[in-house]
């Protein structure tokens, strides 16, 4: 069903990014950052649950938020490659967050006008949270970019390495196209210009170079992920796979 696939295309991003942020808990550069990153993870997982609960309801049968999260394999996950990228260092975690937040905010601003009332409501609630994420990650890009020589270098490296995953954010799947035609989904191709102009402005403020890149990676939206994804799901799903059909 296209609507269910469409929801996965949004919600899987939130889950996988939340999972990555969860890895950092207790290991941040200071207590305040630790709290903020955990907070963002919590918001994203809260959003995931709302979307999955709706998708489960649409799917019927025995589907629940947990069967969707824990029993799909990596070929069924529709998240973009960007969000599954590892926490290589703090600049990568921030760079990944920054690029995703800028996209996420634009997406939700459109999605709140969806003809589908449930999706519109989830988007409306999530905008508040994602505006905060966007402010947090943008501020840190500026701090690191315009901080010390070392932090500038690290932030630039992270942006350069992650840039190759930006184009995929604006690809459309068949489910996307069909939902756009029904006035339910957001046409992500229309967000591209606003995205690049917004992040360019912040990167410049951060005294960073906007990477010049001609070739981009894709595949996540079609379930063809990087080699990171299998490990990430092995962690995420270990309990449900080992002890199936139980209440926790």
């Amino acid at each position: 069903m296209n609507l269910v696939q469409y929801i996965y295309g949004i919600a899987d991003n939130a889950l996988i990014l939340g999972q990555r942020l969860g890895e950092l808990c207790g290991h941040g550069p200071n207590l305040e950052v630790d709290i903020a990153m955990t907070n963002i993870a919590l918001d994203l997982l809260g959003q995931t649950r709302s979307y999955y609960q709706y998708a489960a309801q649409l799917s019927g049968g025995d589907a629940t938020e947990d069967t969707i999260a824990f029993l799909r394999n990596e070929r069924e996950y529709k998240s973009v490659l960007l969000v599954e990228q590892p926490n290589t260092d703090f600049a990568y975690s921030i760079g990944r967050q920054f690029l995703y937040d800028a996209f996420h905010l634009l997406l939700l601003q459109e999605l709140q006008h969806s003809k589908d009332e449930t999706l519109a409501a989830i988007a409306k609630k999530s905008i508040k949270e994602v505006s905060y994420h966007h402010r947090f990650s943008s501020d840190w890009v500026k701090r690191l970019g315009d901080g010390t020589e070392e932090s500038h270098q690290r932030m630039q490296t992270a942006i350069n390495d992650l840039w190759t995953f930006t184009d995929e954010l604006f690809h459309q799947t068949d489910a996307d196209k069909s939902m756009v035609s029904e006035g339910i989904g957001v046409d992500v191709t229309t967000l591209k210009a606003a995205f690049f102009s917004k992040i360019t402005q912040i990167l410049e403020e951060a005294t960073l170079q906007v990477p010049d890149m001609k070739y981009f990676q894709k595949g996540g939206k079609h379930g063809i992920h990087s080699e990171h994804m299998g490990y990430l799901l092995a962690d995420l799903q270990y309990m449900q796979r080992t002890y199936p059909d139980m209440n926790w």
């Binding site: 207790g26 709290i35 649950r49 938020e65 947990d66 139980m246």
Partner: peptide, 30 residues
């Protein structure tokens, strides 16, 4: 104390438990 519990965040068996565990560890940082 965030560490022993943080050890299970990525492997919590349901989304509800994962969110509750994250919130708890965040309280501890607070």
């Amino acid at each position: 104390g965030m560490l022993p519990e943080g050890n299970w965040i990525t492997r919590a068996p349901s989304l509800r438990r994962k969110v509750a565990l994250l919130a708890k560890v965040q309280d501890e940082a607070g």
